[in-house]
Amino acid sequence: MHQTIHIATKEFKDYFISPIAYIVISLFLVITGWFFFSTFFIFDRADMRNFFALLPTIFSFIIPAVTMRLFSEEVNVGSYETLMTLPVSFRDIALGKFLAATAFCGCMLLPTLSYPLFISMIGEVDPGPVMGGYLGALLLAGAYCALGILASSMTRNQIVAFILGAAICFALTILDRVLFFIPPSLTELIGFLGTNTHFQSIAKGVIDSRDILYFLSVMFLGLFGTYLVMQEKN
């Protein structure tokens, strides 16, 4: 467990040593800020529904950029060998990297907490959906981080890892919007597999254990898949 924390701390610091953190955070804030506030006054509602509606799509492109280097760079530089021969298990490594990436996404969301503060100055904000939205955002970020890590473990090229990760995350995001292509008998199942419905239901302030369980399963499957991929390499 100590090892997990040491690895997570190191990976988390790594983000802020390189310019990557600042670029990704700025990009995220500009994109979400622009899309959210450009329509905010037109709708004239004191809530953050539009912000959270956009989040899965934006996350599915931003988070793979956060996770793309986690395994691919290690394998490419060869430091994965150095890391694996330290007295740590693969679980420590994967969990450490996952926690670091999720914590980084938390940092990315942190400045957006100012939105509800500003909105509350001009109108009554219902705290339930906002809190639910942020909880859902963290769960969603965790799930996408795990999938991004899986993509990163599949290749030693960071660009390929990013594209692969974005493809997986985006596919899961839009899954519930392409249901009309799918035979009616399968719509319910396929709809359940997409991230968007689960996220939007939490973001409404309805915290259902099924939604939480869904995100935890995606995280687990992503990391377990990473384990299998890396195992195959040795």
Partner: peptide, 17 residues
């Protein structure tokens, strides 16, 4: 692994540290 120290070929380390 606790009892062993290992230096891989060409010492791959973290470049940014």
């Amino acid at each position: 692994k606790k009892r062993m120290g290992y230096l891989p070929e060409s010492a791959p380390l973290y470049h940014n540290m």
